[in-house]
């Protein structure tokens, strides 16, 4: 059994950090354990500085929403957390990101193992052109999480259940994942992400291609998933950020302008730029 805190493919690591309050002094912000810490994170694509010295803590078992105008760097920040930016040749990342206290850009980190701990769900549902079963079984197989067919079946069932999809697909697990509706496909992608028992789930506009009912189902699911996972979601819907998240971070032109308790951000933002953006004013 792999230690869930262990980002390396070998040698065990110490346990995660606990007990750091998020924002001391703000009475509505109950102290939370921090799962991810970003310190002085800057990202550039060639000459373009996409993120400028971002400091941001992500609370464990909470939903953190990243909001901001198009091009402000939300997706870039999200991709730093599972090192997806490594795949972009022009992309340069500096600063420090710690997951459970471990530097994910450390020299000994195995990126594949990191991505086991940090799953991702994208804007457009992107199931593999495989059966529903194989979509979910894929991760556990390559990471060797199941010792037998029976164990694998159990993981697939559990993941589909947690993604709120099992009852709708249990009689047709051998059908193509791509044959499902958009909303079902997105829940299949969530099932696929959680099948490998990540600690963190990153979601980049997961509902932007979905209708209100499919969106409501995903939002309901996010509410349940946060009991087990730490969730970071990028959304363009202010109402969605207000509905699903505990904390909200507002990005503007590559800078983190304001972060805090979601209830506060949407009733009394501190920064004029945040207020202008969330209330739809010309900035």
């Amino acid at each position: 059994m792999v230690n869930p805190m262990n980002l390396q493919s070998h040698s065990p690591m110490p346990t995660g950090i606990t007990g750091f309050p998020i924002a001391a002094g703000a009475s509505t912000e109950v102290a939370q354990n921090i799962r991810i810490t970003a310190k002085d994170v800057s990202v550039s694509y060639g000459d373009l500085r996409a993120l400028k010295s971002i400091d941001l803590d992500i609370a464990e078992n909470r939903v953190t929403a990243l909001i901001g105008p198009s091009g402000c760097g939300k997706s870039t920040f999200l991709r730093c957390i599972n090192r997806m930016n490594d795949l972009i040749p022009s992309c340069q990342v500096s600063g420090e990101i710690k997951l459970s206290g471990h530097d994910i850009y450390g020299p000994e980190v195995d990126v594949e193992v990191l991505r086991r701990h940090v799953g991702m769900v994208f804007q457009k549902p992107n199931p593999f052109p495989k059966t529903i079963y194989d979509n979910v079984a894929y991760g556990p197989r390559i990471h060797g999480l199941a010792g037998s067919k029976g164990e694998l079946d159990a993981i697939v069932e559990k993941s589909l259940k947690r993604a709120g999809l099992f009852d709708e697909v249990k009689d047709r697990l051998d059908r193509l994942g791509t044959s499902l509706s958009g909303g079902q496909q997105q829940r299949l992608c969530i099932a696929r992400a959680i099948a490998i028992e990540p600690e963190v789930i990153l979601m980049d506009e997961p509902c932007s291609a979905l209708d209100p009912i499919a969106t409501a189902k995903i939002e309901e699911l996010i509410d349940e998933l946060k009991q087990r996972y730490t969730i970071v979601i990028v959304t363009h819907s202010m109402q969605q950020a207000a509905r699903v998240s505990d904390y909200t971070a507002y990005f503007h032109l590559g800078e983190l302008v304001e972060r805090g308790d979601t209830n506060r951000i949407f009733t009394s933002p501190q920064h004029a730029k945040t207020e202008a953006y969330i209330s739809g004013r010309i900035g």
């Binding site: 202010m238 109402q239 207000a242 949407f266 009733t267 009394s268 933002p269 945040t274 207020e275 969330i278 209330s279």
Partner: peptide, 9 residues
């Protein structure tokens, strides 16, 4: 409009 911030207040 689902107002927020000062508009909501």
């Amino acid at each position: 409009r689902q107002p927020v911030a000062a508009d909501l207040r």
